[in-house]
Simulated assay, not measured.
Amino acid sequence: MSGALRNKTVVITGASSGIGLACAGAFARQGANLVLAARRYVDLCALAQSLEQTHGARAVAVRCDVANEADCEALVQQAVTVFGGIDVLVNNAGVSMRALFADLDLAILHRLMDVNFWGTVYCTKYAMPELLRSRGSVVAVSSIAGYRGLPGRTGYSASKFAIHGFMESLRVENLKTGLHVMVACPGFTASSIRATALDAMGEAHGETSMDEGRMMTAEEVAGRIVRGVIQRRRTLVMTRQGKLAVLMNKLLPAWVDKKVYQLFAREKNPLVK
């Protein structure tokens, strides 16, 4: 599949770290033009320069807070101005949380929905004319938490469930337009998302609550996303554990409740015991 996306324009949100950073490299290796979006503009500029030097990719960095609608509109306008259109939008920007609902400030839930759900909606809305014109792809990087609620992640799970509903509706609306709609659901992935997850008061935890060494790498996730775009896949559930969780949640949801509880009771400093 090398070069399958050559000269296609790919917009990636949350591109400064984790899965977004890995996606930037994976799409660059396919010869794509890149529009890299995140709040950390200095890091994005360094990434764009690195991709240009390493892969010969054309890359532009755009400072963007996806929770801000105007930023999302400006991101799309920048992509169109520089590259003349958009072929792939990867809605990857996201934030997590780790706190029991009884303990948290409701502002945390607002933040989760603003970034994870509304960020996806805003970027998709403004990119739609270009994506329809190119018969391109819109991708949402979601989670198994979009299929199954997880303890200590009420806001995160709610935002991912909302994304799934949005993307599913969008897919049906566009069955005959040529737009490709894909939801990508990695398993637990080694990245900074748990260290930056918000606690009950909205502060970053600063450390992971799980064993990162046993998780998927961001690079593995990015490779699967790129292949999914090329193959125009509908949904990617990336691990055996994830596929089993989705299946068993349909068949035996009460049993899955207990298994999920047991899993999260084994976290470092568990919230459920």
Rank of each mutant, 00 (worst) to 15 (best):
L5F: 00
R6N: 07
R6G: 02
K8I: 04
T13S: 11
A15G: 04
S16Y: 13
A26D: 02
Q30V: 08
G31S: 13
C45A: 11
A46F: 04
Q53Y: 08
H55E: 12
A59Y: 06
A59D: 01
A61Q: 06
V66L: 08
A67P: 05
A74M: 13
L75P: 04
A79H: 03
N91V: 06
N91G: 01
N92R: 13
V95R: 10
M97N: 05
A102R: 14
L109D: 04
H110W: 13
H110L: 12
T120N: 05
V121P: 02
V121Q: 07
Y126H: 15
A127S: 14
A127V: 13
M128S: 11
M128Q: 06
L132A: 02
R135F: 00
G136L: 12
G136E: 06
I144L: 14
Y147T: 09
R148V: 15
P151Y: 03
T154P: 00
S159L: 05
F161H: 12
M167G: 09
V183N: 08
A184S: 13
A184I: 07
P186K: 14
P186L: 14
R194E: 07
G206R: 10
M210D: 01
D211Y: 05
A222P: 00
I230P: 05
T235A: 06
T235S: 13
L251S: 03
V256I: 15
V260P: 06
L263P: 04
L263V: 15
A265W: 09
R266I: 04
K268C: 03
N269E: 07
K273I: 03
